[in-house]
Amino acid sequence: MSMRTPLGRVRGLGSARNGTHHWWLQRVTAVALVPLTVWFVASIVGLVGADYETVTLWVAQPLVAVLLILFLLTGFYHLKLGLQVVVEDYVHHEGAKVATQMLITFGCFLVGALSIFAVLKIAFTS
């Protein structure tokens, strides 16, 4: 009979050696993304056919800009976590695995940072 707690046993396990941390963050971002996605899709539907003026004014509203940034942060992080699992499942060569994982991380952070910067620029300059 082990005296270790369930948490102590899972720490350091899993294919990325980080226990349940990855799994849990995927759930936390998923829960956050449910309302954010509904809000985002509903907003985009309202912007169908909108001209440049309308779109920039929409993004520049404080509540919209902040919700957009939160949507992008959680969305890109959720994407990074999800793609990592796909690679862990299908890429078995250690070198290729590490390389793809890094590419995914860099790619998600790059595209995420570009998107967030764009929102900030629209919000602060229009």
Binding site: Y52, L79, V111, L114, S115, F117
Partner: peptide, 15 residues
């Protein structure tokens, strides 16, 4: 994930 490229493109274009 591929679709986020469209989203980024759209936001960068507005900016």
């Amino acid at each position: 994930g591929a679709g986020t490229l469209l989203l980024a493109w759209w936001l960068m274009a507005i900016a």
